[in-house]
């Protein structure tokens, strides 16, 4: 296989997922310029390690690389705020009570139902990255728990608890905004 063939093959398989890669990076990094740097690094890495792809879902393989590239980028830039916590709170062992038990102020209110896209984006961007990413992968990439687990590199049980926690936190943020 010539080098050109290898590049064409890579582009054929991996380039179609550029929007997914950029969207994840953009939500993680929080701005376009950094997202572009992260995605470009991720694509170069993916290309270098193309042979490590063992078939299966290219998007899962690529997004895992995007996520790792983001982690490295955040570490190099010392953006502690952005980095995933080493030991994120596991909802199963979380000392705080389940957030969902807080009642809505208005029983008729549809949680988040009346929010416009921009306010919604602000709330999601306010979540810690480990919660933000599972929401993005679940709702924007329509990934299964198994696929999310593969991208994030955690057991499926952790995906479940993080997703439950992410939703509860998002709901709480929405209620807080409603009060303000």
């Amino acid at each position: 296989m010539t080098a050109t063939d290898r590049q064409r093959r890579f582009e054929l398989l991996v380039l179609p997922h550029l929007d997914a890669a950029y969207n994840l990076a953009r939500w993680l990094a929080g701005n376009p310029a950094d997202a572009e740097d992260v995605v470009q690094t991720a694509y170069l890495r993916a290309f270098r390690y193309f042979e490590t792809w063992r078939g299966g879902d290219v998007r899962v393989w690529l997004l895992a690389i995007v996520r790792n590239s983001f982690t490295d980028w955040a570490r190099e830039n010392r953006s502690a705020r952005l980095v995933f916590r080493a030991e994120p709170i596991d909802a199963d062992h979380d000392p705080t009570p389940p957030l969902w038990t807080e009642p809505t102020r208005d029983p008729e209110a549809q949680v988040l139902g009346e929010l416009d896209g921009q306010s919604l984006a602000t709330l999601v961007q306010g979540l810690a990255p480990e919660y933000r990413e599972v929401l993005i992968l679940r709702e924007m990439e329509d990934m299964s728990y198994k696929q999310i687990a593969a991208v994030v590199g955690v057991p499926i049980g952790t995906v479940m608890s993080r997703l439950a926690r992410a939703r509860a936190l998002l709901r709480r943020a929405w209620l807080a905004m409603e009060v303000a």
């Binding site: 950029y22 988040l112 139902g113 416009d116 919604l120 709702e139 924007m140 709901r171």
Partner: peptide
């Protein structure tokens, strides 16, 4: 409702062609 709202309204970021 939350799932539906996120899916319908959360802005998707599309890659700029210059990035490709």
């Amino acid at each position: 409702t939350m799932r539906r709202t996120l899916r319908e309204r959360l802005p998707a970021h599309r890659a700029p062609p210059a990035l490709a």
